[in-house]
Design a protein around this nucleic acid. Structure first.
Lengths: 350, 350
DNA sequence: TCGGGGTGAGAAAGCGCTTCCTCGCACGCC
DNA sequence: GGCGTGCGAGGAAGCGCTTTCTCACCCCGA
């Protein structure tokens, strides 16, 4: 009745039941043949089942499996903005590793809104994902602070594992990135090639990643005699336009003897570059600029951008491995970063 | 026994059963209270259930719902490369619209490999997604051609809906993009501002999108007297490095009187720009360059890139709306594109 | 010859939900 | 006052799977 006899006309996908009937075996045997059960099943039967499955174009219903097994093969990924190269690179890493582990990844965007993030975590929990990865640091002054932590802990209590990327405000597994050290090294190198007067454009209030980078940069300057006045730290949106705006206000109030602007990430740096050009100044000559992340495009802008390389895909991969309990991943320490000097900071000979 | 009496110690998430018991109502009533059933339920009961759910931190098991309802709230998205801005922008659109419809999106990357794509479609089918969106055109000369079509049709027969983005080789719902017209318009404008001698760098053999753009561009030239020799159409990988390599071989064999290079997408164009610079030539002056897509970065490169804008996020959104049977989306016709002239094609006065 | 043990197929219970169906109840009409 | 009707709560079946548990069967040793 259900399958009207003619296969090609069936309206609903073949079930395991169909396969079992087609193969002339029991449901149990069919199930055991198609997944890697520990139980042995007669070779002859197994073959019959496999053939029947192929004939019926059977594809196991993952939801049903999840219900029966009490566990899924899903990993949930939460990022601030999918179109941002920083996040899309991380996502690519997560997806690659997930694929390797035959896991499925579901993705959502918080749009940098803590409330939204909390709500998404709630919804995503309904999927009972094995792993939940949260990328993108959030304001330390966060209205939902406690709630998110509570939610995540509840999720872990029920058997899930959460991994945070570069945000250690909660006591959870975390992929740490050498943001601070990278920025400090950058500052040292920049002073080393002659720069003295700096300004910083950074993201909104209290973003962990941004704050670490700024701290590191200051520390590097402090150690080497670079100069950074307090009012030379500008806050703007953590986006290309934020960088543009930040740089513009810097220009509008007069560059003075300012020599180099450090933007807390590359997309901002790229925006800043355009702001400089739009003011008919020459980036690298009139004012140098440096970023952070080494997203793919920065080697193609002019001048090519000095930055701190962070292996974004690697972060994504590491996050998943960490979640899956990979020993190595757990012991490798923070993700290493590396200063990359390019033409946007040609250096100053004094 | 299962819940040991103390809520905070429970190891497994609360079930609907727990909620019902806690609220002192039947399973059926609990279910009806928590989802938008058509049936009425006593206000007093509903309130009790909602409270119980909150108290137990209940979150419905989506897999179980899917099994019971026979339908999921999932949309599957297949792209070639997540880190590529073209795809990540489209993905962002899909995710935004999905979120709006309270759907969950799962994402996978084909890495431009038809075999992989086929396999992914097979796996993803197990999820019984409501919608499957495939982005990224594929070789027309494709070993798995028939198989993929077969698989997708089978999926549709079982109630799913698939939407292709800019690849009309299969008889399936498609988001069409004015690739051809856009490229033609671009060619006309470029001839209009004085260019005569052109070359094209395009993606690998038979990519639909690439082919359409090339065709359109040729048509535009043909109509206006622009000149394009057959051996001035170069094939390379559809990536930044492909663009770089393509441009380099163009340079190595001698630019001659070549005036403008059209790259079939922006990432290639950006690569080409760098190749030009690396050869100590000045893009825009020594040779002009134009791309296609208007990805975010191209306004920040120097010279800013002339391109054809295609609203990438809109494509993603449209794809999902189309899948969901949105009348409007179905009748709107191809996605409009728009020529954007920038400094990389300053024009030639003759 | 008979019993014990090992093997593996199949019946059936169960996973967390939805939804059909039954049935008690209150109400209104003649 | 009796009965039909509508309403809505709850029992129970069922979704597509997995995994116990039962049990038939075969081989072997005493």
């Amino acid at each position: 009745m259900t399958d009207g006899g003619i296969e090609t006309a069936r309206r609903t996908p073949a079930t395991l039941h169909d396969v079992a009937r087609e193969a002339g075996v029991s449901l149990a045997t069919a199930s055991r043949s198609l997944n890697g059960s520990t139980r042995k099943v007669n070779e002859e039967y197994r073959k019959r089942v496999l053939e029947a499955a192929a004939r019926l174009d059977y594809s196991p219903n993952l939801s049903a499996q999840a219900v029966a097994r009490g566990t899924t093969t899903t990993v949930a990924l939460l990022v601030a903005d999918i179109a941002d190269p920083y996040f899309s690179s991380i996502a690519a890493g997560v997806v690659a590793e997930a694929d390797h582990e035959r896991l499925i990844v579901t993705m959502a965007a918080t749009e940098r809104d803590p409330e939204r993030e909390l709500e998404l975590v709630r919804t995503l929990r309904g999927q009972r994902p094995r792993v939940m990865i949260l990328a993108g640091s959030r304001p330390t002054s966060d209205p939902t602070e406690g709630a998110l932590g509570e939610e995540l802990r509840a999720y872990e209590r029920s058997g899930g594992v959460v991994v945070l990327i570069s945000r250690n405000e909660l006591e959870l597994r975390t992929v740490l990135v050498e943001n601070r050290d990278g920025a400090e090294a950058l500052a040292r190198e920049l002073v080393g090639i002659g720069y003295r007067r700096f300004a910083i454009i950074t993201g909104g209030e209290g973003l962990r990643t941004a704050a670490d980078r700024v701290d590191g940069f200051r520390a590097g300057l402090a150690a080497t005699g670079g100069e950074l006045r307090d009012d030379d730290i500008l806050r703007a949106a953590f986006t290309r336009d934020g960088g543009y705006d930040g740089m513009r206000s810097l220009i509008e109030r007069g560059l003075g003897d300012l020599e180099l602007v450090f933007a807390a990430n590359d997309v901002m740096a790229v925006g800043a570059l355009s702001a400089i050009r739009d003011a008919n100044l020459v980036p690298g000559r009139d004012v140098a600029i440096a970023g952070f992340d080494d997203i793919p495009t920065v080697r193609d802008v002019t001048p090519a951008l000095t930055t701190v390389r962070v292996p974004l895909e690697e972060i994504g991969r590491r996050a998943l491995r960490l979640a899956l309990g990979d020993e190595e991943a757990a012991n490798e320490g923070a993700i290493r970063t590396e200063v990359v000097l390019r033409e946007s900071t040609p250096g100053i000979t004094r």
